[in-house]
Computed example of a mutant assay.
Amino acid sequence: MSSPPTSGSPEGGSPGSGLLTFGETMGLVAADGIGPLAYAKSFSFGIGGAESNVAMGVARLGGEATWLGRVGPDAAGALIASRVAAAGVRTLAITDESFTGLMVRHRRSGEFAQVDYHRAGSAGSRLSPADVPSAEITAASILHVTGITPALSESARAAVFQSIETARAAGVTVSVDLNYRAKLWSRFDAAPVLRDLASRADVVFASPAEAELFVGPGDVPAELAKLGPAEVIVKDGGDGCVALIEGERHTVPALAVTVVDPVGAGDAFVAGYLADRLAGASPAERLTTAITAGAFAVTVPGDCEGAPTRAELAALTGDDVRR
């Protein structure tokens, strides 16, 4: 059993416009400092989820965004609903009888982080097609989904593909971030599903490694574009991004910043691109905003805490002292 969705505050935007996204957001236990988990002396507790990260990023950049998902009847579920809404996102949190998923993250060294998931049978994995109203989809400007949700359960996968078909039939732009997670499913299982997602999308985001799960090496944007999306954006961390948008190629280098925490950079990048797309910006402007938002995110610890406002984006490339 589950409770009806609860909406965020009116400041989170109005139904029927902007971005609609859905998926699992979890509680996040993060070890402070760097080193083996066994030697961590303190921990912080927050939230993390690719889709809600993007929604929060869009909202902070002035766009309207709605996030929908299932959460448990627990403190972590309540925190997710309140924190996403507090970021200005219209929040449709369905209270499920199961628990809110949890992830535990630590920085084993300064070079990489490790994340362990505790989400099998979680509230978020119980998402189903009935949870995503057609009216919400058809009234949105952009439907954004990721390759994470189809890996959670059969019902969650069905929710993604049914929502995409509803959006396509209504002429709503479909955005997909492939977001392959090796701890959720194998490359063999993921490849055909991710390929199917890309072929149904108008906008596709991928890393080179994610794209090469199902396209050959070489010109990755061109290979992805052959599947049908008009906008292909290949995000490559410190190497910036390469995009093929309506047949025009764009290459944007990364910004030089001090990396504090790389987690969440990809979601901030996507949020920057989609926020500018909603605002009617040109492809070049969207990519510049995306690169800058991603760069800003890595300078702040946490999954979603680093998503910048427009003023903060401008500050990143200007004077580093705010007086």
Score class of each variant (00 low, 15 high):
residue 148 I to W: 01
residue 98 S to T: 10
residue 94 I to P: 06
residue 59 A to G: 03
residue 184 L to F: 09
residue 268 A to S: 11
residue 142 I to M: 04
residue 187 R to S: 13
residue 212 E to R: 15
residue 267 D to S: 04
residue 84 V to M: 06
residue 135 A to P: 01
residue 204 V to G: 02
residue 318 G to V: 00
residue 246 E to R: 15
residue 63 G to D: 01
residue 312 E to A: 13
residue 179 N to R: 12
residue 64 E to R: 06
residue 126 R to T: 08
residue 247 G to N: 14
residue 100 T to F: 09
residue 303 D to R: 03
residue 31 A to E: 12
residue 45 F to K: 10
residue 43 F to N: 05
residue 259 V to Y: 09
residue 146 T to L: 10
residue 94 I to N: 04
residue 238 G to D: 13
residue 260 V to K: 02
residue 238 G to F: 11
residue 138 T to N: 06
residue 279 A to E: 15
residue 304 C to Y: 09
residue 288 T to W: 12
residue 202 D to W: 11
residue 148 I to E: 07
residue 242 V to N: 06
residue 54 V to T: 01
residue 71 V to F: 07
residue 7 S to G: 04
residue 12 G to M: 04
residue 102 L to E: 11
residue 282 S to F: 08
residue 195 R to E: 14
residue 51 E to D: 11
residue 51 E to T: 00
residue 39 Y to V: 14
residue 225 A to H: 07
residue 235 K to L: 14
residue 86 A to D: 10
residue 46 G to R: 07
residue 236 D to W: 01
residue 30 A to F: 12
residue 168 R to G: 14
residue 115 V to T: 11
residue 273 Y to Q: 11
residue 159 A to E: 01
residue 186 S to H: 00
residue 35 G to V: 10
residue 44 S to D: 03
residue 30 A to C: 13
residue 303 D to Q: 07
residue 112 F to D: 11
residue 11 E to P: 05
residue 217 P to S: 13
residue 319 D to H: 08
residue 147 G to Y: 05
residue 17 S to K: 03
residue 22 F to C: 02
residue 42 S to K: 11
residue 159 A to N: 06
residue 311 A to S: 08
residue 316 L to F: 10
residue 259 V to M: 09
